[in-house]
Amino acid sequence: MKRILTIAALAFLAASPAFAGKVVVAANSSQGALDKAGVQAIFLGRTTTVGGQPAVVVFQKGPVRAPFESGVVGRAGAQLASHWSRLVFTGRAKAPEDVADDAAVKAKVASTPGAIGYISDEAVDATVKVVFDF
């Protein structure tokens, strides 16, 4: 029994992302809170508006990227890039932005209507509005 509990706890720990983060939009965006499916739809290019504006999807290269891609979007790395190449080169979506880190995501999101990105928990401040927690 104890052993099963230990295994379950280990499995839970292994499944938990090493970083927690938030999906954010501009502080003045009319976008309301999203569920996981809503975030997936935007970051897989299926929903093309954010807060009533044409979506500008912002990926970043910081440590929050891996837990976000594998834990929330469900596709990561080359598979995700391949998915987006299918959308971009057929005109189904605009190419996503790919910026360096939390600060760059906040700057882009705060200044661009329709922009949506993800940042680590500690980077959240008044310039952005949290729409999903992961």
């Binding site: 890039a81 391949s82 190449s85 299918r86 080169f89 057929t90």
Partner: peptide
């Protein structure tokens, strides 16, 4: 067809 030449896809 839509990404016929996009080898990466």
């Amino acid at each position: 067809s839509d990404f016929l030449e996009v080898g990466y896809a």
